[in-house]
Amino acid sequence: MVHQNEHQHTQHIVGYGTYIMVWLALLMLTALTVTVAGMNFKNFAIVIAILIAGLKSILVMNYFMHLKFEPPIFRTMVYITVFTLAIIIGLTFTDISFR
């Protein structure tokens, strides 16, 4: 644990420039997802859209939500949550596809 007396601030300070780069990347990924949706990928379109949305979320979490600079326990908790949701989705789909 970090003591408050040693560090005046509560968190690792990230430069403004990094935030602006991440924002630009997010805008480009938004343009990409709109462009890809315009192409005719049929059933893959939704998979690609989800992958790009996932990538955008990772950027937001790591930089805007500072996950990259947090102690490892934060990432562990995120993995557990995503894993839980994946199990729920996976089990539901195995149920409905064998009805």
């Binding site: 997802t33 949706a37 379109a45 939704i46 949305a53």
Partner: peptide, 14 residues
């Protein structure tokens, strides 16, 4: 913001 990142392609782009 993250929730909207998923809502947007699902509702507007499929």
């Amino acid at each position: 913001d993250i929730i909207w990142i998923f809502l947007f392609p699902l509702f507007y782009l499929v």
